[in-house]
Design a protein around this nucleic acid. Structure first.
Lengths: 201, 201, 201, 201
DNA sequence: AATGAATGAGTCTTCATTCAT
DNA sequence: AATGAATGAAGACTCATTCAT
């Protein structure tokens, strides 16, 4: 009994320290591009030593991936929360997603990074695939609930792709404020939701 | 007269050397992620010295940007070629774009890079904006020709976004061959073209 | 108690390693102009890695400055030692200073460098100013002790300037040996001490 | 006859171009430390090609040296001009020299550079020695004219050294304006002239 | 004599990772 | 388990000088 408790306690401590590291990283990502964040910076921000970071993650990439996976899980969770009360419209879902991306550009940057470029360990690859599948499940569910009968999976892919693509024009909207960008991207989201709902342009 | 000829010749030589450097870079991008390509590698591949690279570009970023701009110009040109013969359908245009992206993943990676993260000189920013606008013009034209009457500009944005988003799921299709990926992404392109043409899902 | 001891030990180790680096630099300066000494050379001479150098100094300039400050502190200390036994004559002080400069040309080169050209961080500038002020204090004290009643501070400036100026003719005494140069510069020092003591020429 | 005229003309053209280069260098030195001025910058400023620079000077060092020698010759000339009208006092001479140094810091920086550090070709060394000797002659003459009977040469050395030393505290007078520095250095010059004239402190 | 593109050795500096304590 | 100093390979970029035109 005691032993088990001890183990639990240890695990909890471990988890909380891991959370501290993750949060430190997130705080830095809010300030600068995640690709330019160094281990030293994270360790300083988290108030732990560099060695400790490597005690929790085999390398920086895995730490970054963990941040990404956490975000993805968060989105999935939020999708579920939204749906649990009342079936949302496709538009609401799309708006929610783009809104999240506006608030968490790092998530999008990381998705681009890991999807396009990054060498990932098999284990990491699997975790990545899994969480992306979960995300896709939610989108498919939403599509089904708005009456998309056929090809729902591939349509989910297409919709997810379409939404993700919106953010590519994010930063480079010359001379726009964050608020304007948000409005613009939300408008694009609404439009995409529209066409996927079969609305005439 | 002779003097003018000489100037022209010099410019041509300069252009051809610049092309050599650009091509060398492209060859490397086919093998490895552009972000990990070094000046030394490019100079070696091009058969010129490191110094020469800096004789043509103030820094690596500008070289990369030039590669990107060239690609973008190429796409724009191809759009024009396609349209010059016979008005293409939206589907054909989308398929063409995604096909191009399949063959030139670096273009997409660079677009992500420059659009999301990259610090660019004002001059570079302007060039980037301009070429993107040109690209958008072609897409808008295509939309107009298929009967999109209202909001054609914003719809172009949305369509372009949607297409770009497709590639984000490119590399991470676990265990798929290039050919399968091409098929999958083209299918998504077709679907997106469909919804933007007002086809019911 | 133990913890404090540990901290002390660490600091001592750190100091000793810093000393190793500094000494390595000094050995190199004996052989070649300090401006042409590279980080690699210092690291090799010190038997540590390049990275370690940067672990102790943010950049080469600060390392050089530290060498300079150490020398300046050494001179100040020596001034104090000389004065502690018996009030020295102005001539003795001047001779001592020039003798030191003969043995440590790098000190003079660095003084020229930092005083005239070098971009220094605010922090570095402050340290530089401080040590120079200390040096000046000693000279002023000596002047006071030989009966310089008025304008002692500005006179100290003038004397210090005059002594420093001597070394500018050091290296370029064509075809002279070190010993001859030493004799010549010491003679100049004596002469300057003389005129500052009110001796008729 | 004609041939001689042609040669003369050629020489004049050569000289004038050389002057253009020298002046360009000087303009740059007014803006930045001469050690950080590049051949490219000089060629651009002079409106000639890099190759042309090397047509007039075997290397950058010799160009710098030429700038220095020109300045030194200018000072010598000015000394002569001053003396030609009426025998100046030692104080006037010292003030003049320090005033010149205030206006031409680069001269002083170069003197430090060449006297202390620089590797010079035998030819360059000789030219340097010669011009310095000329300068010293003027100072000795002045000393003689104010009644310095014995050791006039070595005293000239000492005086020249003393004056040069003044400028070492130039730039690093924290928070002082150019005007304040000028006043301060001139005051030091006057003081040194005083002690060398046998004035009691 | 003038040109200026090409050269490439050499510079400082960064930073993920290791490992002895 | 936590620490953080040490590591050193690797990077981008500079710039005096050459030389074919």
């Amino acid at each position: 009994m005691t032993k088990k408790k001890l183990e639990e306690l240890k695990q909890m401590e471990r988890d909380s320290r891991r959370k501290i590291i993750l949060d430190a990283a997130l705080e830095l990502f809010a300030v600068k591009d995640f690709r330019s964040v160094t281990v030293r910076e994270i360790s300083r921000q988290a108030g732990v030593s560099i060695g400790t970071i490597y005690n929790y993650y085999p390398n920086l990439t895995e730490l970054f991936l963990d941040v990404f996976l956490d975000s993805a899980a968060e989105i999935t969770q939020m999708f579920d929360n939204i749906s649990s009360k009342k079936t949302p419209t496709l538009e609401q879902l799309c708006e929610f997603y783009i809104s999240y991306l506006n608030d968490n550009m790092t998530f999008y940057q990381m998705m681009s990074h890991f999807m396009l470029g990054g060498e990932l360990s098999p284990d990491a690859t699997q975790k990545l695939d899994e969480i992306m599948r979960e995300l896709m499940n939610r989108i498919e569910t939403a599509l089904l609930s708005v009456g998309c009968k056929t090809n729902s999976r591939i349509t989910a892919h297409a919709l997810f792709s379409a939404l993700n693509g919106i953010m590519i024009s994010y930063a480079r909207y010359p001379g726009k404020t964050d608020e304007e960008i948000r409005r613009h991207t939300l408008r694009l989201a609404k439009m995409i939701a529209g066409v996927f709902s079969g609305k005439k342009l």
